[in-house]
Design a protein around this nucleic acid. Sequence first.
DNA 1: TTGCTAAGTGGAGAATACCTCCATATAGAA
DNA 2: TTCTATATGGAGGTATTCTCCACTTAGCAA
Lengths: 197, 197
Amino acid sequence: MTGETPLRADAQRKRVQILAAAEDVFRERGARVSLDEVAKRAGVGIGTLYRRFPTREDLLAATYSARFVAFAETSRTRSPHLDPSDALRCYLEELIQYSNLYRGFAASLGTVLQIGTPGCRATLGEGARLLDIAQKAGAVRPDVIFDDLICVATAISLATEQDSSPRPRIVHLVNVFLNGIGMQPNPNPPSQAPNMA
Amino acid sequence: MTGETPLRADAQRKRVQILAAAEDVFRERGARVSLDEVAKRAGVGIGTLYRRFPTREDLLAATYSARFVAFAETSRTRSPHLDPSDALRCYLEELIQYSNLYRGFAASLGTVLQIGTPGCRATLGEGARLLDIAQKAGAVRPDVIFDDLICVATAISLATEQDSSPRPRIVHLVNVFLNGIGMQPNPNPPSQAPNMA
DNA sequence: TTGCTAAGTGGAGAATACCTCCATATAGAA
DNA sequence: TTCTATATGGAGGTATTCTCCACTTAGCAA
């Protein structure tokens, strides 16, 4: 990812411009906005954008990378203070809320997470870690795999991305699903709204 | 839906041609194929297609309608012979398999079901009925609503639509989810592969 | 049969988006 | 200062969606 020939200074500068513009435009107009618009906002040619980010998912993964790094870090710091079920619950709720940050992002969540940015790797790693802990603690059925979590996170994101205040429904659906993988529902969950930097 | 001014005979004929072509093309090339291609295959102008089916979802709902009618009928006939949990389990597994009939259909499942074709109405009605029975029997948590089922059916369809033989994963995920809404997992489920007419 | 007209038709073309290609420009090493 | 690998921008080819309207026709009424 970062191990290749370093970018020339001007290219690096434009890369940053593109990411800043993409963040703004995706927030305003959703994740499916025309990439021409992103390039225009960034003040670069469309060719430059494509050279740096060959697919929309690459661009999405890059705009999410820093957020995902912070998200994984927060989760990792918090988890020792929670029981395994609650740690996994918080992780999922927050992941879903993050993926609702850009309208239309949810459908790409799985694809984006497969792109090897540091943030995506950290997020996948942290989720797998929490699942493993929860399974070893006997709180989650052993036949569940991490992909199942992503599958359901995607579904819940999709189902709630139109809602004006999706939080309660997210909490409900996560609860239902976690019950499905073996947990007792928690009537008083410790979940907090993520900062959404 | 059908209560409006009846179509002129020629229009009705073309409508049938369009549906037959759409069925073929969607099966071969997936639900996101260009609608020009459907029109060409049907031997009608693109304008005619749009006049009859203003959105892609209208066309999808229409191609699915007969199948959904049969699906709901089968479920209704079978359900008295099963316990409420198994009836709901079969319904969900089959709904997911049906929605994998065209590649790329899964993402539209929710939208399509909202379109008032007889098949969609029958399918929604049957699902709501089975959920209600299962809840009254105490087999499913009372806080689950039918939309939750659609949300999860969509997720499972999406997650499995790339798989070459998705059946085992569908069964696994449905099982996990139904466990989530309160059911005991059934080690020996009575589910059968739908006919997929 | 013969108009008549509401209903239907097809496809050109405007609008939008994707993505490639390459003549040109430039950072930065030597 | 020179040189060249790297980077740039945007024109333009391709694809798709969807509208619009001049033309056609089914089917009714006389």
